[in-house]
Design a protein around this nucleic acid. Sequence first.
DNA 1: GCGCATCTGTTAGATCCCGAACAGACTCCT
DNA 2: AGGAGTCTGTTCGGGATCTAACAGATGCGC
Lengths: 273, 273
Amino acid sequence: MIGGSPQPEEVVYLSKRRTPVIPRPEPHRSATGIRNRNRLLAALPEVERQRIEPLLDVIPLRLRETLHKPGESPSHVYFPGGGFCSVVAVLEDGRMIEVATIGREGMVGIAAVLGGRSPSSSAAMVQGAADICYRMTVDALKSELDRRGSFYHLLTNYTEALIGFIMQSTACNAVHTVEQRLARWLLMAHDRMESDEFPLTQEFAAMMLGATRPTVSLVAATLQQAGLIRYYRGHVTIVNRTGLEDTACECYRTATDLVQGVTAPRNTRSRSR
Amino acid sequence: MIGGSPQPEEVVYLSKRRTPVIPRPEPHRSATGIRNRNRLLAALPEVERQRIEPLLDVIPLRLRETLHKPGESPSHVYFPGGGFCSVVAVLEDGRMIEVATIGREGMVGIAAVLGGRSPSSSAAMVQGAADICYRMTVDALKSELDRRGSFYHLLTNYTEALIGFIMQSTACNAVHTVEQRLARWLLMAHDRMESDEFPLTQEFAAMMLGATRPTVSLVAATLQQAGLIRYYRGHVTIVNRTGLEDTACECYRTATDLVQGVTAPRNTRSRSR
DNA sequence: GCGCATCTGTTAGATCCCGAACAGACTCCT
DNA sequence: AGGAGTCTGTTCGGGATCTAACAGATGCGC
């Protein structure tokens, strides 16, 4: 079921895609301020960024750490400077199904943008560790949002995009195979990590996808045999990104365009449908 | 796979549920103003409702009508006074998968609450016809929201709840069977219609659930044989609501609590987890 | 170094669901 | 009235996925 014939990477890549899929990690230039590792923060006009910078803590994102749980009112929002987090819906039996992935392009805690101090119905956890994540209290966020400046518009746009992301996930889980969804997940993780290799157990992948370990194991073996990935004891390596893109469903591209589009320059923006 | 043993309806109902699942259609009392058929509008304080009423059109919701399509910037938002609409994600092949259901308890067009004039990534269509739906232009909505009054807070709360609803749908599609999801869908439709009988073709149900007609046909036959529903040529009748509740997954209750909780009095509010 | 506990990964039978084709019923037009 | 077209509903193999159980590897304590 691995789709398409493997072709020279650049040819396929350039012929099928208008713009590069991954805006690869630009070198960290301290001259323009440390805070621009997160794209939402980096997209702020200078005046606002200077006002907001003092409101930010820098914390590391530790693997498996929980940023908020269902039923709690989150105290902070998070702007990852690397790595990524999963937003998950928690079922009564404790299963956690991923509904969205958030990395440097976004913010964890969109409920705060809607002013909600009500308990969250979702959880957020760290899937890809990172040294730098910017943290802000919900109170500080609200004060800033009340100014109705660029920050407000940026975050409402992002919230809208993330809703679209989640909707796409809903459809994806209904109709696409585990193989397609695993490929999509690996691509999204790859986009947000700085390396081709990162930790991932099959057990975790299975839970995020709402599948079982045996199924993920089977699918992962297929992907490995096709030369798209390698994995060993809780670590995956992306070997053939283009092949993964061919294997993944349309949802990868649609969801990626939505959230990347918030901070992307207009002319490179592409909207599906 | 039909769960539980059929028992006298009231006993089961009262023992398992704290509050009635359906706030049954209260008689339409013109004395308190016609606009309270929609619960969001009805929840407004008198002053705001009087200010907002003139901004509302009354239109009928016609079966299968499309309220907005992906790629378009919606011009209006809609407050159903009955019946219900489906918000659907549209895939490249044209398939439409339901991500949320909106009836008298809600509003169609939440993107406008986030100020988005950007093209919608979803579509909304009428699934249950109704004589009365209140319509408002996005511009008028924005002006009202800018006052940051009760209307604003009500709609941001509703938006937050709807995001939770969609997240639950994401998880549901990943892990629950078509039977559970069909039962859930029928219950949500039943909650929003004023009758036990309403039009529904198996083809449509299949598309909304991301399943195929044969699967829905099989499942529907099972539900009918269990005495939970009857159907004939595009019409369904809910026969045993309690039985359907036992067959549906937890997502029915979780999602229902979320959106009904926005307008429900505090003391009847129940939050899952 | 050895045995146990824990975690990762695989195998095998049962079940759910899909795709394709078929069958039955209503509508409409002449 | 009757036949074509369209829509609703069903049947039947094949494939995808689940459940349950097994196998292999690592780490840790003594």
